[in-house]
Deep mutational scan, measured.
Amino acid sequence: GTLHLNGVTVKVPSLEKAIKAAKKFAKKYNLEVQVHGNTVHVH
């Protein structure tokens, strides 16, 4: 999967790991997580 954090793109081995990391990051910075196919966006 691919993880987008505020314009930074990170390749992640699995989508589940990407979503987990995204949710952790989003919670910390009070951001929103959106999943588009195998790409996770945090903004």
Rank of each mutant, 00 (worst) to 15 (best):
V10S: 05
P13S: 14
T39D: 11
V40K: 02
V10K: 05
I19Y: 05
E32D: 09
A22D: 00
L3H: 03
A26F: 07
N6H: 13
K17Q: 12
N6I: 12
K23M: 13
T39R: 10
S14R: 06
V12W: 13
L15V: 09
H41A: 11
K24N: 06
L5Q: 03
V42Y: 06
T9R: 06
V40L: 06
E32Y: 09
N38M: 10
T2Y: 15
I19M: 06
K11L: 13
K28D: 04
H41I: 14
V42L: 13
A21I: 15
F25T: 01
H43G: 11
G37P: 02
N30S: 06
K28M: 07
S14I: 08
K28F: 08
G7I: 08
V40H: 03
A18P: 00
K20F: 04
A22S: 01
V10I: 15
K24V: 06
A18R: 01
K17G: 09
I19R: 00
N30D: 09
V10H: 09
V10L: 13
L31E: 00
A26P: 00
L31Y: 06
V42T: 03
V8A: 06
V12K: 04
K20L: 11
K20T: 09
P13F: 09
V35Y: 04
E32Q: 13
H41M: 15
G37Q: 03
E16Q: 10
A22C: 13
K24E: 11
V12I: 08
T9I: 15
N6Y: 11
L3K: 02
K20A: 13
A26W: 09
V8E: 02
F25A: 06
A21M: 14
I19Q: 01
L15S: 01
V35P: 03
N30V: 07
G37Y: 05
L5V: 12
F25C: 11
A18W: 09
P13K: 12
K11A: 11
T9Y: 13
A18E: 01
L3G: 02
G7D: 05
V12E: 01
G37H: 06
S14T: 10
V40F: 02
V40P: 02
K11G: 06
L15D: 00
P13T: 12
H4Q: 08
T39Q: 12
E32R: 06
K27H: 06
E32V: 14
L5N: 01
N38I: 13
E16Y: 08
L31Q: 04
E32C: 15
Q34N: 06
K24M: 09
Q34W: 14
V8R: 07
A26T: 02
N30P: 04
H43S: 12
Y29M: 03
V40C: 05
K27E: 11
G1S: 10
H41L: 13
K20R: 10
H36R: 08
H41Q: 11
G1N: 07
L3D: 01
A18G: 03
N38T: 10
F25K: 03
H36A: 07
N6G: 12
A18H: 00
T9F: 12
A18T: 04
